[in-house]
Amino acid sequence: MSDIVARARVLADDVLFPQAGAVDDAGAVPSVTLDTLAREGLYGLTGPASHGGLAADPATVHAVAEAMAGGDLSTAFIWLQHLTVPAMVTGSPLADEWLADLCAGRRRSGIALLAATRPQPVAITARREGDTFVLDGGVPWVTGWEHVDVVLVAARDDDDVVHFLLVDAEEGPTLTAVPQQLVAVQASSTVEFRVSGHVVPASRLVRSVPLAAWQARDPGNLRANGSLALGLAARCARLAELPQLDADLAAVRARLDAAGPDQLPDARAAAAALAHRAAGLLAVAVGSGSVSAGHPAERLAREAHFLLVFGSRPAIKAALLHRLGGVG
């Protein structure tokens, strides 16, 4: 899998980073950029080879995500959400219909999974009515709205079973998407997603999992988001010409890779804190230019701020407060 990692690094250096400032100014990732990722096979990174995917191991997924984040975080953010869906669809009743298109990037996806990770209140509820599910509720963050065909929605029923459904990304009387105004990655097309009496065919059910079973494995799913912080920190280190940060990057990366579920929150906090520190060092190295709107150091500082809270959990927040300010 070293070939796909090498290709991702070239793509990040030659395409994504040179246009990142323009993407940030425009507030939109060009569709042609995502088409390029699809042609490179990156949409199929987590999909099975039987359906055109790359069946990448976790280390490869993390290395590619790190490279992409070091190119343009908005683009990486949209693309990374998609990777959950081929992995979830694999082995499901929807595999034959959906997997080949998902792996090729002909169908692109976002995720709305808060109902699977937050105990109360339930973000999105589901009730079964014959051959349909009826969904009510909403989540504050669904990324890539203008670039996705479907959203993998987690919805919970009265028995605390989580149903994962593929919902068409189309607004209407029962589904709305309100753009979020963010200090960074505004180009990621992140929206507040709401449904009210929204009917989804039961044929779109990917799988159903008891809430307790899903939450028991959730801490083990935190590793990939740490790669975003590592990628940003590595870009800052290169721009600031501070190779001494390489040892810190290697140490945090190794810690993330070795961490079990109980250690992952603190390892994630270490990655976010490193990105925050690296962005600060870049600002100091650049000097007064770093506070000029549109300078890469200014954008990367905003993105490092974003990564302090993105994909967080209470344990990550507590660890970051301790690391950054000695709180707790």
Rank of each mutant, 00 (worst) to 15 (best):
R156D: 04
P58L: 06
D24T: 13
H82R: 08
P48K: 11
A233D: 05
R223C: 10
E241K: 08
Q181I: 00
A123G: 06
A304K: 03
V151S: 02
Q263L: 14
V327Y: 14
A56V: 05
L37P: 02
L175M: 13
A247Y: 09
L45R: 06
E192F: 01
R277F: 10
H62W: 14
A212N: 07
V64F: 05
A59D: 15
A258Y: 01
T190H: 03
R323C: 14
A269M: 07
D266H: 12
L222Q: 10
V185Q: 05
L99E: 06
H276D: 13
L99A: 10
S188G: 09
H276Y: 08
L16K: 12
A100F: 10
V85P: 01
V161D: 12
A272E: 06
L320Y: 01
G52P: 12
R118Q: 14
S227K: 08
A216H: 13
A267E: 03
A269D: 04
A59F: 14
L175P: 00
V286K: 06
C103G: 15
V200L: 03
V199E: 11
A55F: 04
P58E: 11
T36I: 12
P173M: 01
F193Y: 15
L73E: 03
R223I: 13
A26D: 12
V64S: 02
P140V: 00
L239G: 01
A116P: 03
V178C: 00
R7P: 03
A273H: 02
L166E: 04
T90P: 03
D13V: 00
L102G: 06
P243G: 11
L239D: 02
P210V: 09
H51Y: 14
A315C: 04
G47D: 06
A273W: 00
S290L: 09
T36V: 14
L230V: 02
G105A: 14
Q215K: 08
A279E: 08
P58A: 08
R253I: 00
A237P: 13
V284D: 13
A213R: 15
V32G: 05
P201Y: 03
V209F: 04
V195H: 04
G21H: 05
A26Y: 15
P119R: 15
M68S: 05
L256M: 11
Q81G: 04
D157P: 09
H62D: 14
F77I: 00
L245W: 14
S109K: 10
L281S: 15
L274F: 09
